[in-house]
Nucleic acid binder design. Structure first.
Length: 542
DNA sequence: GGGTTTTGCGCC
DNA sequence: AAAGGGCGCAAAACCC
């Protein structure tokens, strides 16, 4: 059963179970809790935007099984309809439905809009929204169901919508629960690497020492954070460099290179994961980043703060389970080539993808070298042609023609300005007006190839992202209370649970991977190994 | 002075 | 001859 939820002021709200009249309730969380265990299984909660509703429910201890997020669904549908970038809020969808002026997307999901502090601030000065009403929400929902039915493959698209909406629930829950993060261990790590915490605006001791060392070597003091000054200093020293990148600096023989690179690595660490970062993002030994579901065009999640998806591996030492609890960490091995094998229906590749180490299984086809197999697969999926790739791609074309054709077709579509879709129907953005201009000009070949690489990768990365999303949605349903999903990074998940539930959580990961594979691809020889380990500290996991 | 783009590099 | 997909973030660099 569908139940429309519209949040009101001060914890009140409107509820409209399908086929019934709208009820106004003073305590929305309590009313939702009462409706949670319906006769025909848990309801599907239909609302405009999970972020407007669910956090307050979580505060009250109310967790829900499933929902339909109108804004996320609108984004998926608009893209599928070739209208990527149009405002996707429920209000915008309603306005389009009735030919009314469409409100802008101040708080869009994903890259089409901004929803940082600035946009939020701007939204405060907007007109008050009209009084909440369940009717429009139900109307937009009905319209979306109709449009889902009109997609290329409604069964798959329904799965995509369900997974994306489940992702919204999970992101909110992760924000609520937070990832265990020991501030004391974090501080100890910083002290070890950088020295004691400096007064605001000063360089930490270790950084200053390296800066001094650089200055001593060059015989002149300059800002080691400045690309221009670095290039100038090397030129003056008689060893010119083509750029200030680590890769280029390593090419020249100069005693300044080592301390400069050491400085940069530490400086980066300081600015990304230093004391200021911890002050802002770690509270009560929990790291609470802001995830943006579907924030990347391929359907991967993004973050709008906290940099949760770029956490340096060295920081894993600070991620430690609570006393008596454990972390269950799992990542999908070689997810993207497996996804390609399943999608393309390539029998040879699928056979290799039935093995635990796909590249090892492929090695024989590529002259016995595992690395060659890996380069060939990655080049096919990324559009790379450097080094040995061309030769290896020729082998791939011959040995795994269906997989080769699959990515080539996607690339061709991109080059020609057409749209490509993931397995479940997530659709890439259409080419920009600028691209259309460019592609008919003298540099057109370049622009076409660039877009071809993008669409070639899109079909694989987007499908890998939805496999991971489905996996997580299934896993969430299998986890015994009070186990919690606390982290998600593209193809890796982390569960925080009491020690005695670790075995159950590990088993749940394996079952969820199988179920995700079945839901997406049905019967397939391709395996998606997802090894889960129970550890006390994240750093112990691989 | 503030806003935007570029650079370099970490994650997948 | 070289050539590789998707991000976020901080500081520098650039621009108005």
């Amino acid at each position: 059963m569908n139940v429309v939820v519209v949040p009101g002021a001060d914890g009140s709200g409107l509820l409209r179970p399908e086929g019934e009249a709208t009820r106004s309730v003073a305590d929305l969380a309590a009313a939702v809790r009462d409706l949670r265990g319906g006769r025909a299984g848990p309801p599907r909660w239909v609302w405009a935007d999970t972020r407007e509703v669910y956090p307050a429910l979580l505060e009250r201890g109310v967790r829900l099984a499933r929902c339909h997020d109108l804004a996320l669904t609108e984004g998926l549908l608009l893209a599928h309809e070739g209208r990527y970038g149009e405002p996707r809020s429920a209000r915008a969808a309603y306005a389009r439905l009735h030919g009314l002026p469409v409100p802008g997307d101040h708080d869009a999901h994903g890259p089409a809009g901004h929803h940082g502090p600035v946009a939020r601030q701007a939204a405060l000065f907007e007109e008050e929204p009209p009084p909440p009403d369940a009717g429009p929400v139900a109307e937009v929902h009905a319209d979306q169901l109709r449009r889902i039915g009109a997609t290329a493959d409604p069964r798959r698209f329904r799965l995509l919508v369900a997974a994306e909406s489940a992702g919204a629930l999970i992101a909110a829950e992760m924000g609520h629960d937070g990832m265990p993060w020991r501030r004391d261990l974090h501080d100890a790590l910083l002290a070890e690497m950088l020295g004691p915490r400096p007064v605001h605006g000063m360089r930490p001791a270790r950084l200053q020492a390296l800066a001094d060392e650089v200055a001593a070597v060059f015989g002149t003091s300059f800002n080691p954070d400045s690309v221009q000054q670095i290039v100038k200093a090397f030129k003056a020293a008689g060893t010119p460099v083509s750029s200030a990148r680590a890769h280029d600096l390593k090419k020249v023989d100069h005693p300044g290179v080592a301390p400069l690179l050491a400085y940069r690595e530490l400086a980066r660490f300081h600015s990304f994961h230093g004391w200021a970062w911890a002050d802002q993002w770690v509270r009560d030994d929990r790291f609470r980043p802001e995830y943006v579901v579907g924030g990347v065009v391929t359907g991967r999640w993004a973050t709008s703060g906290g940099g949760a998806l770029q956490i340096h591996k060295a920081m894993r030492r600070a991620v430690v389970a609570d006393e008596g609890w454990t972390l269950v960490v799992a990542d999908a091995a070689q997810l993207e080539p497996r996804v390609l094998a399943a999608m393309a229906g390539d029998r040879g590749l699928a056979r290799a993808a039935g093995e635990a180490d796909l590249y090892r299984a492929l090695a024989r086809a590529f002259g016995g070298e595992r690395d060659h197999a890996k380069i060939a697969m990655l080049s096919a999926m990324y559009g790379g042609t450097s080094g040995d790739a061309s030769k290896l791609l020729a082998v791939m074309r011959q040995r795994f023609p269906a997989a080769y054709r699959f990515v080539e077709d996607a690339a061709r579509a991109g080059e020609e300005g057409r749209l490509v879709r993931s397995w479940l129907g997530r659709t890439c953005p259409p080419p920009s007006a600028r691209w259309r201009e460019l592609v008919s000009g003298p540099e057109g070949g370049r622009a076409a190839r660039d877009r071809g690489r993008f669409t070639r990768n899109f079909v694989v990365q987007a499908t890998a992202a939805e496999w991971a999303l489905v996996l997580m949605a299934v896993l969430r349903g299998l986890l015994p209370d009070p186990a919690r999903l606390v982290f998600f990074q593209h193809d890796e998940v982390m569960v925080h649970c009491p020690q005695e539930l670790a075995g159950e959580a590990v088993a749940a990961v394996g079952r969820a991977a199988e179920e995700a594979t079945r839901l997406l691809f049905g019967p397939t020889p391709v395996r998606f190994p997802m090894e889960a380990v129970a550890v006390r500290c994240y750093a112990e996991a691989k």
